[in-house]
Amino acid sequence: MSQVPVIDAENLQKVYGAGGTPVVALDHVTLQVHQGEFVAVVGASGSGKSTFMNLIGLLDRPTGGALRLDGVDVAKLTPNQRAAVRNRKVGFVFQGFNLLRRTSALENVELPLLYAGVSAHERAEAAKRALTQVGLGERMGHMPNELSGGQQQRVAIARALVNQPALLLADEPTGNLDSTTTREILKLFVDLNVNHGITVVIVTHENDVAAVSRRVVQFKDGRVVMDGPPPAEWTPAVPAPWHAASTTPASEVA
């Protein structure tokens, strides 16, 4: 782990409400995530975990501290460069899927390529590949409202993957899904991490989801209060290769 970290947050700070009483959402968070890690960010609602994700996804701007993605200080980026990072380096998956309504699955997945300036033909090819990868090869022409929640989330994951980003950020990706679908989505994340080398950071408040990861970062009141392997008493929702290597495999505890 001597390379440049994918995510390098240093004293990252986010304070809301410049006018009245300021609310500190993120309080001097220092955290590094390296290439190929599978990290779960946990914490109660309001702990700052989503704020942290929005900052590293460049959807929001910090009010203090420094953030480097692949060694690049994002504070120095122009708005267009920030858009390019969102487009190419980071794939974001939301709890509410955030698909465009009345737009087919294929076109939703094509969207990042559209802004990357890829030709129509290549867009369609890449989007089909991504949809096939998430197991939705058969339903490309469907509109989001014709798909189940799990299928919609797969479309969203395909969209996040289509530009082949190094980093996949997922903010409560299984929050709206039942347990069966949750397991399918998590298997997909594990596969992307293990077989495609994509760094995965996933926000969740469910222990069994967090337990799938290799590393759990717990937020409380805007600070990191714990950073390490998942506690042994948490049961992973799906198995991952690293569970077997662990001294106390989660499956044995269950």
Binding site: L59, N80, N87, N98, L111, P112
Partner: peptide
């Protein structure tokens, strides 16, 4: 507004 947010999140520039 949400649609605009989604487009920005996947890499649309404000000019787009």
């Amino acid at each position: 507004t949400r649609e605009i947010g989604i487009r920005l999140a996947v890499g649309a520039k404000s000019r787009d």
